[in-house]
Amino acid sequence: MTPPDAWTIAAVIAFLALLASLRLSVPALEGSRLAGFIAHPALLLPLVLAVPMTVGLMMTGAVPVAPLSARDMVRADYGYWAGIAALITVATAELWLLWTPSMVARRFARPESREALKGLPILNLAFGAGFLALVWNAWS
């Protein structure tokens, strides 16, 4: 086991933010008290910086699209825990590209907008997948 370092804290924060993202993304977790505690929405705050930055880094080819490749690349330069933080951050960024925004919109939709928002997850998935495929193709 690699001893904890400053990156361990980053990995833990990234993990909690991933849990909070999953809670927003999976309707079944909406009412869970446990999920409400360990995946509190306030934990999403670091993502305001991390997600656009990760997506930007993917576009420049500095970070691979595949989370495991991102882990290996970052681990080689900065160590084990930095690799774990990168793995989680890339997975979280991809969750937000593919799914989470549409689920947030649907969950908190005004009654008059619910019908129109039903189709949004498909659009979200198509947009995110298309974007990731383009980036993958450009840098592989």
């Binding site: 997600v51 656009p52 997506v55 930007g56 974007f131």
Partner: peptide, 15 residues
């Protein structure tokens, strides 16, 4: 880098 990444989300919202 940040602006490019955020721009992708903005593009999604506009679409």
């Amino acid at each position: 880098i940040y602006g490019t990444g955020a721009g992708i989300f903005l593009l999604f919202f506009v679409i």
